[in-house]
Design a protein around this nucleic acid. Structure first.
Lengths: 326, 326
DNA sequence: TTGAAAGCGCTAACAG
DNA sequence: CTGTTAGCGCTTTCAA
């Protein structure tokens, strides 16, 4: 079963290689008659194109790499979903990786993507430093990162945090809590905390950082959440507690723990999440969530990549909307 | 910024192209001295390999395609997760698609994967018929399908359904219900129903098919589930109801509806899911679930692909474990 | 232990 | 509108 190539179909149709190539790439240059002949042969031999050869010669592919920290967070799953769907329209294909632990492994991963000549990489992982990323000679679209001089898409974390705080106060919460699984001050998501703390600065409030919550679908996260809820209840008996969680999965975990304990939602504890991923709508009691507009994020990611490519010869810096904030 | 290739590093190291190529592919044939020289130059020029050219000439890639029906079901997400992680060890990269609506679109999708010279395709979508699949000239590993003459991995649905029924009876349920989002009799998952119905044949039982449950994270599914629970409660007041759901997400949705209504779990309704995906462990009340052993499935999928490839010259039929049942 | 030369399957000038 | 020619960056005989 030898691969049938452009050559065979050229011979069978009595035309040259070039003409067949043009059938695919510049069909408007061919006469109807030739086109028909070629099409017939293609059908007959059941030919399908070889993208690998095409990529090699043009130097351009429609492959895009994505590196997620993990796939368990519903924000990531949903973003992947949206990227695949939107990418499909534009004929992009995605190579998906989940991040490794070390900087070296991650750089190797990116090298692997480059070796497939990906058009660009959507980066959600947080392992590399901005300067690492700037050195890479592939277009990078980073999501929820900031600091470096490359294309970045973020939601307006500051306003998000602020809105959450204000809403909880408005709803009569007497103590305001933020639960987060960890941050660095140069991450955009740090601003969720800043915004929230600003909003609640005149009220009793507390920020709880617990790294064990990072993978919400783990025993360790469940235990950590349970401990947090226990402490909060002891400390703030008889007060209405308002909790802003750094993502929807954590919010969901919190709600779960409250329900198990028979705590009334939202009478005793009111919860707000971040992301507006599907999990927030389909919790036992749908959870209010700060919207990241995941579908739009996916679209902007793809579109930025196209802008990137379109202007790669020009001094890119001036043309690409480097920082997009939703 | 021209791409540095094998050629540049050959010149700089004072050796031939071939030698540099061998540095990567048959290093044992080179003298230590040459190797060192080449390595130094590689570092110096920051060279990285070009897989595209390599694939073109060898005809073999480490790309694997995956086609999911959708990404919302936790079984799919978790399988993807496991495939990526296990594949990483073996240096495979995955191109991920979600399925389209029609047979033609799906065939086009597969053609697209072929055009990237994927080593094989892991197929979870159910659109194509077994004979469609047999005609494809790419190795296909199908999961939860049966009927055709190609590599298939299934869990033992029959026993799974049976176990679920038996467990519910053992736990004192008086009415046995199966909730499913739809099936064809030639799908392996149909056997879940058969096994379950066998187990409960001497008890009052009922099988509910509701296609609206297919995407559990949709308004329409929530409504459908709510309607089902309402009907069940009306019909079987005061009886302990045992429900076997066709997947964990449906089970989770059911639990959610019950909790909202204040129904006691498991006193009034007892739930069993299928898949043993993370969602079953992290429901409000962890849900008993029939294990599909997703990590093992991922491993077998990859390994089957390797077996496939290794023996592609031989009459494959006799060598490949066509049907694997977990 | 190394090199020269011939492609892999396709596209892109350039020339009719 | 169509064909000729020269590669893309690499691997692989074959020969030294």
């Amino acid at each position: 079963m030898d691969k049938v190539g452009i050559k065979e179909i050229a011979e069978k149709s009595g035309v040259s290689l070039t003409t067949v190539s043009r059938y695919f790439n510049k069909p408007h240059l061919l006469s109807k008659k030739t086109k028909d002949k070629i099409q017939a042969t293609i059908q007959e031999l059941n030919y399908s194109q070889d993208n690998v050869a095409r990529i090699l010669v043009t130097g351009k592919s429609n492959l895009v790499g994505i590196i997620f920290p993990q796939l368990h967070l519903s924000f990531y799953t949903e973003l992947l979903n949206q990227l695949i769907q939107y990418g499909e329209e534009k004929d992009y294909s995605f190579i998906v990786y989940t991040s490794r632990d070390t900087r070296e492994e991650e750089l190797a991963m990116i090298d692997r993507l480059k070796s497939y000549r990906v058009k660009g990489i959507v980066l959600l992982s947080h392992i590399l430093s901005p300067s690492d990323i700037e050195k890479l000679d592939v277009p990078i679209i980073s999501i929820e990162r900031s600091g470096g001089n490359y294309c970045q898409i973020n939601s307006d974390n500051y306003t998000g945090g602020k809105l959450a705080g204000e809403k909880l106060i408005e709803d009569g919460c007497e103590v305001l809590i933020h639960i987060n699984n960890g941050y660095y001050e140069n991450w955009p998501s740090f601003k969720r905390i800043v915004g929230f703390e600003l909003a609640v600065r005149n009220m009793p409030h507390e920020t709880i950082i617990q790294e064990d919550l990072t993978d919400p679908y783990s025993e360790i996260a469940s235990k950590a959440m349970s401990a947090i809820v226990g402490t909060l209840l002891d400390k703030y008996t008889d007060k209405k507690i308002g909790v802003f969680c750094s993502n929807d999965d954590i919010a969901n975990m919190l709600q779960r723990d409250c329900i198990r304990r028979g705590i009334k939602i939202p009478e005793n504890i009111e919860i707000i999440g971040y992301d507006n991923s599907p999990v927030s709508d389909y919790a036992i009691y749908p959870i209010t969530s700060i919207d990241q507009n995941i579908p739009l994020m996916a679209q902007i990611a793809i579109n930025s990549l196209e802008t990137y490519i379109a202007h790669e010869n020009v001094v890119a810096a001036t043309l690409i909307p480097k920082k997009t904030t939703l």
